[in-house]
Design a binder for these strands. Structure first.
Lengths: 201, 201
DNA sequence: CCTTGTACTGTATATATATACAGTATGGAA
DNA sequence: TTCCATACTGTATATATATACAGTACAAGG
C-alpha cells in the first residue's frame, strides 16, 4: 500500500471512526460538512486518492459506497500464538491456534498476538499458568519490562533487566533462578508484554 | 421491545449479516432483490414494522439509514462498571466508565461487565490492583468461585465458601482476614468472576 | 362482522448522493 | 522550468434511494 499523506491519514481515521459510530460510511456531503470542506468535490478527491493507494475501496454509483480495506479495529481480534514456557523453557514451535475478539488497540502499545503462559515462574507478577499474555512485537526492551525472549529454540517470558554488563531474564517467583544471558548467546527479544487475559478464574 | 414475527426476525437477521459483510446497511432495492420481493415497498414496510417494534432505527431521508438497535454480539464489547474494593471494601457506587472491545462470549459463561479491582487482597489468585475482573451476573455462587459480593453498600471481590453453616468471603492473601457473613447480614451475590483483563504489565 | 396487522405487488416522485468538469494555489520531482 | 500530485472552491447533473399512494390476500381478535 502506497504511503498516505498526513491529511489523508487524518481523513481515513475520521471515516473509520464515523463508520464505527453510525454503522455506515459517510456521504461526500457529510464528509465536507464534518471536515470543513466548502466543496463536496474535496471529499470526492480524497476518497479517490485513498482508493488509489489501497486504503479503501469505492463502489461506483452506490450511496455510501466506501469499504475500509482493513476492517475496523474493534473486530480485528487477536490470535493465540503457540505456547510459551514461563517456567523452565519448554516449547518453541509457533503456530496460530484460536482467535479471540479483543481489540488489539485496547493495550498501550497495541498488542500483536496472545501467548499462552506455561508454568509458575512469573506467578508474583500475576501471570499464572494458562494466562494469555498480550504481546507487542518489538526487538528491544527497556529495564523492568516483561519480555517474550527467544534463547536459541526456546521461548520464555521473564522480566528484562541489565545488570553488570549482561542481560538478566528475571523470574517473579523465589523458587526460580534468573537466566543470565552471556555475550554470544543468541538472545532475541520477540516482544514486550502489554497486558494479560485470563479466561478462567 | 415488542415481539417480532418469524419473517421479521428472519429479515432482521439478514440485515445484520449483510451490514456486517458490506460494512453498511442495505437499500430497499437491495433488500427486495436479495429477499425475493418484487416490490421495494415490501422492504419499506418490513423496515417500518421493525422500527415500530424497536429492533432498528430509521434515519428519514437518508441513504442506507438503518441503525441496528442491538449491535452484533461480536462487537458488543464490555463496560467497566465502577471500581470494586478487593482489599478492605472501599467503594460502592456503580457507574459505567469505559467500554472495551472484548467479546463477552469469550468467557464461559459469558461476561456481562468488567470491574476494576482495588487492593491486594486477591493477589495470590493473580488478581492485582487495577485488574479488570470479567463478571457474569448471577445471584448465586458455588463453593470456591470468585464472587462479586455486596455487603450493605459496599462491593468486594472474594472467594466464596460455606463453612460451619455460614458464608465465608475468603481473600487470597495471608495478610487479609476472611469476611464471615452472619445470618441477617444483607449479603447479595452480584456475580461470579469468569476472567481477568490486565491492561498494564 | 368489522377492524387491525402482516405480507406482499405495482407505480410514481422528490431528493439524497455520486460524480463529472472547470478552476486556483502550493510544493516536490524531473 | 515544466510537470505532476495534493488540496481545495464552485457549479452542474444523472441516478440511486427513500418513500408516498393505490391495491390484493390472509389471519387473528374483539
Amino acid at each position: 500500500m502506497e504511503p498516505l499523506t498526513n491529511r489523508q491519514r487524518q481523513i481515513l481515521e475520521w471515516i473509520r471512526r464515523e463508520t464505527g459510530i453510525n454503522g455506515r460510511p459517510p456521504t461526500r456531503a457529510e464528509m465536507a460538512t464534518a471536515l470543513g470542506f466548502r466543496s463536496v468535490n474535496a471529499a470526492e478527491e480524497h476518497l479517490r486518492a485513498l482508493a488509489r493507494k489501497g486504503a479503501i475501496r469505492l463502489i461506483p454509483g452506490s450511496a455510501r459506497g466506501i469499504q475500509l480495506m482493513d476492517g475496523p479495529p474493534e473486530d480485528a481480534g487477536l490470535w493465540v500464538v503457540g505456547r510459551v514456557a514461563a517456567g523452565q523453557p519448554i516449547l518453541a514451535r509457533e503456530h496460530l491456534t484460536v482467535r479471540h475478539s479483543i481489540d488489539p488497540r485496547m493495550f498501550r502499545p497495541a498488542a500483536d498476538y496472545l501467548l499462552t503462559v506455561v508454568g509458575e515462574s512469573m506467578r508474583d507478577a500475576g501471570l499464572l499458568d494458562g494466562d494469555l499474555l498480550a504481546v507487542h512485537k518489538n526487538p528491544e526492551a527497556r529495564e523492568g519490562q516483561i519480555v517474550v525472549a527467544r534463547l536459541g529454540d526456546e521461548v520464555t517470558v521473564k522480566r528484562f533487566s541489565r545488570r553488570q554488563g549482561a542481560i538478566w531474564l528475571v523470574p517473579e517467583n523465589p523458587t526460580y533462578q534468573p537466566l543470565i544471558v552471556r555475550p554470544g548467546d543468541d538472545l532475541v527479544i520477540e516482544g514486550v508484554g502489554v497486558g494479560v487475559v485470563r479466561l478462567e478464574v
